[in-house]
Design a binder for these strands. Structure first.
Length: 410
RNA sequence: GGGCGGUUUCCCGAGUGGCCAAAGGGGACAGACUGUAAAUCUGCUAGCGAUGCUUUCGGUGGUUCGAAUCCACCACCGCCCA
């Protein structure tokens, strides 16, 4: 099976400018391609991770990836598929985010010996001269065409600033620069980037008279079409401090039945034959597939040790076997306890992050009846936990079945 | 630049002087059922020292016993005209 066939079989491919040409180039393992990442936060999230796995698959086949970090484009904000304008970020924030991105990427992609490059478009975008750029690059773009681009449809009703409209020019210019400076002839990315990528191809053709190619991968969507990787608290981050490995594991362990196989194909590096075997599983058997999915992804993102710990923690909580060592814990210091050496349950719930406020905690106790400490259901919001009742290995505080924290004495 | 319309709680969206912490829907969270699934049904969704109190309806100031609702100014946005 060729690399191209594998990408296809994994359900990754969305749109391609020239299927045969792209297949030949990447199968031969000689291609240089790039994927852009705009540093809109101080950590990558699962959507980025998808793109990184694609990058890795191509790199393993001998192709050379360029990870383009958008320190310049982040100053504008990509309007593609959005209904509102992005928040403006300061240069300091952007540069900080760029550094965070670089660190996370290099854990996953091999940048040694020039096997992959990481570049920042701030290097060329931030010092552009407006008039020169407009004469040189802006003149190549046709507004009528741009307005027809599907990525702007949402914004046609809500309004689109010129700043954001010009995003396509910036991304096109990136591609052009990478083509000239690194011989990069392909751009890959999420399917929402299609229009921007085509812009770059046109620019290269107009300026250089040469062909370049674009390929998009399917966005990580659930079977109902909603985006994966979003939770109440925000995105599912790859940074272990922003999103605990245990929670990361649980996130994937809890995907819908209808999505497990799809995600296994798209995200993991397990052989397709093995995944096809799992495809035959049904009903509660799928729990095993989810376990594998969660383990594989946690292992890739946080390392095998963390994956094992997360799995052990899950076993302890849901099967009642094994140690509770890896359940996310909350340390209680001496000053957290009152003069009687006790701490009230509401404070604990807020401290652990399981409830967003004292009122929320109170509701969970008196209305939802969803709080339990150890094995005891708590119905009284004045309930206190005595310091000496917290065993050395910690005490489990549960909100519902899945939201579990362990409190320990500092 | 001119005319008209808009800005509501996580999101959409109702509310045009007291009965408004604000309808309805979505999402999130929780309960039942399950397989740490889905579907379904139910509850819940500003804060707090909690049968009460405090803050919230773009911003500031005003009218009023009382304002999300009325007035003035400001900001931002949309549509139409230029």
């Amino acid at each position: 099976m060729t690399l191209y066939e594998e990408l296809q079989a994994r359900g990754l491919l969305a749109q391609l400018t020239d299927e045969k040409e792209i297949a030949d180039l990447i199968n031969a393992g000689k291609a240089t391609f790039y994927i852009g990442f705009d540093p809109t936060a101080d950590s990558l999230h699962v959507g980025h991770f998808m793109a990184l796995t694609l990058m890795k698959r191509l790199q393993q086949a001998g192709n050379k990836p360029i990870a383009l970090v958008g320190g310049g484009t982040a100053m504008i904000g990509d309007p593609s598929g959005r209904t509102d304008m992005r928040k403006m970020m300061t240069v300091e924030t952007i540069d900080h985010n760029v550094e965070c991105f670089k660190k996370q990427m290099s854990r996953f992609i091999d940048f040694s010996d020039n096997k992959a490059l990481i570049v920042n478009n701030a290097d060329w975008l931030r010092n552009l001269n407006f008039l020169e750029f407009m004469r040189d690059i802006g003149s190549q773009f046709n507004v009528n065409e741009m307005l027809r681009a599907r990525c702007y449809v949402n914004r046609m009703e809500k309004g689109l600033s010129f700043l954001e409209f010009s995003y396509m020019l910036m991304q096109s210019y990136d591609f052009y620069r990478l083509y000239k400076d690194y011989g990069c002839q392909m751009q890959f990315g999420g399917d929402d980037q299609w229009s921007n990528m085509l812009g770059g191809i046109d620019l290269i053709r107009k300026k250089e008279g040469k062909d370049a190619y674009a390929m998009t991968i399917n966005l990580l969507l659930k079977h109902d079409g909603t985006k994966m990787g979003k939770t109440a608290g925000g995105a599912v981050w790859l940074d272990p401090d922003k999103y605990k490995p245990y929670d990361f594991y649980q996130y994937w362990r809890n995907v819908d039945d209808a999505d497990v196989l799809k995600f296994l194909r798209m995200m993991t590096f397990l052989p397709l034959e093995q995944i096809d075997e799992m495809d035959k599983w049904e009903g509660s058997q799928l729990n095993e597939a989810k376990r594998i999915l969660a383990y594989e992804l946690t292992s890739m993102v946080h390392g095998e040790d963390e994956a094992k710990k997360a799995e052990a923690g899950a076993k302890a909580v849901f099967m009642g076997t094994g140690s509770l060592d890896t359940v996310p814990s909350v340390e209680l210091k001496d000053e957290d306890f009152n003069e009687n050496g006790a701490i009230d349950i509401i404070t604990v719930l807020v401290k652990s992050g399981q409830c967003s406020s004292r009122s929320d905690a109170r509701r969970s106790i008196t209305k939802d009846h969803s709080i339990s400490v150890g094995d005891k259901k708590i119905d009284d919001f004045t309930y206190e936990i005595k310091k000496e009742d917290i065993p050395e290995e910690g005490l489990l505080v549960k909100k519902g079945k899945k939201n579990i924290k362990k409190i320990v004495r500092a």
